[in-house]
């Protein structure tokens, strides 16, 4: 019987998810023995035209990481969707928008202006901006166009599974590979992680959630054994799906939500905001104002990895051109 065909691709990504797959160490040899990897830009030399030549649904499993923010990324997402039996949104960017999703606080125009004209380290005296079509003496060059907004993979094509995390922990990847190889994948549409929150698997000492004030990291030295939230450090554990092994907490850093919202939550940021306001101690208008001063960047902090996946999806702009 022919070996299953596997593909991995990155859209608006950083390479971390691909490195996480490589970090499965010996498991990668098992994966290579189990299946034929037919497309994986970071590791193998297959080109887009190889993928276009494949028959529909000939790729058994495609792990797609990275968010969608350009015409090329959307095109390849649709291409891989057509060629794949099972398409997995791999990593926080594909699942929720990820860090590139923070671009939904700004606009395409502002990004282009900053990157190509305003940035202090630029040397671009003619103010050249990238163009979709550029004429050169020898012919024409083309580039993809940027969309106004960042989208998750599921907002562009149907997806069978979601593996969250920035990046997904290597042991979770190993677990998923084992499930796939033994035919024991959970129901289609599942987010392959814990059904509970990060708080649930956190082994720090939790007493009562009553916060007198929120601190920024330079304002306090935290006790590594106690709950960070109870000490006044904003930790997104209560509104984040578990399954990551609390790796950030173990490094004494608060959770920032890269596993996305837990089961039953539509908007991670709204839920986290609700939790923060609930546990704050203070019933007077002065206390409320104090809290507002202490939570410096609510939208950025609560939607760190999930802005495109949120209910509002992006900051409202006067005129949205295209997507």
């Amino acid at each position: 019987m022919a070996k299953p065909k596997l593909a991995l691709y990155w859209a608006a990504a950083c390479g971390g998810c691909d490195v996480a797959v490589l970090d499965t160490n010996e498991k990668i040899l098992e994966i290579a023995a189990f299946g034929d990897i037919v497309f994986w830009p970071i590791a193998l030399d297959f080109k887009y035209h190889h993928v276009r030549a494949m028959e529909d649904k000939s790729i058994d499993l495609c792990l797609f990481n990275g968010a969608i923010r350009s015409t090329e990324q959307e095109e390849i997402a649709k291409l891989l969707r057509a060629k794949s039996k099972v398409l997995v949104a791999f990593g926080a960017c594909a699942c929720f928008g990820g860090i590139p999703g923070l671009a939904n606080f700004t606009t395409r125009e502002e990004i282009l202006q900053r990157v190509y004209k305003e940035a202090p380290s630029n040397s671009n005296p003619e103010g050249t901006l990238p163009q979709v079509k550029t004429k050169v003496p020898e012919g024409e060059l083309d580039l993809p166009d940027l969309f106004e907004s960042v989208q998750t993979l599921e907002q562009v094509v149907p997806v069978e599974y979601f593996i969250p995390g920035c990046p997904p922990p290597s042991d979770l990847i190993v677990k998923v590979v084992d499930l796939y190889v033994t035919g024991k994948m959970p129901p289609v549409g599942s987010i392959v992680a814990s059904d509970k929150t990060c708080c649930d698997e956190c082994d720090r000492v939790k007493e009562e959630k009553k916060v007198a004030r929120f601190y920024r990291p330079h304002e306090i030295t935290t006790d590594p054994k106690k709950c960070l939230l109870e000490q006044g450090i904003i930790c997104c554990g209560p509104a984040t799906r578990g399954g990551c092994g609390m790796r950030c907490i173990k490094a004494n850093m608060p959770c920032r939500g890269c596993f996305g919202p837990p089961a039953g939550v539509a908007d991670q940021g709204a839920k986290m905001l609700s939790a923060i306001a609930s546990i704050y101690q203070g019933d007077t208008p002065e206390a409320v104002n104090k809290m507002l001063d202490e939570v410096v960047d609510p939208a950025g902090t609560f939607y760190r990895f999930g802005l495109p996946d949120s209910m509002l999806k992006r900051k409202k702009v006067a005129k949205v051109q295209g997507k």
């Binding site: 306001a277 409320v288 939570v295 509002l312 900051k315």
Partner: peptide, 23 residues
Amino acid sequence: AEGNYKAARRVPLLKKMLAQMGI
């Protein structure tokens, strides 16, 4: 007893976040 105090904290914080979202 405390429900409206929670609302009194939640709504201003939500307003701050909505302002960041351009609302």
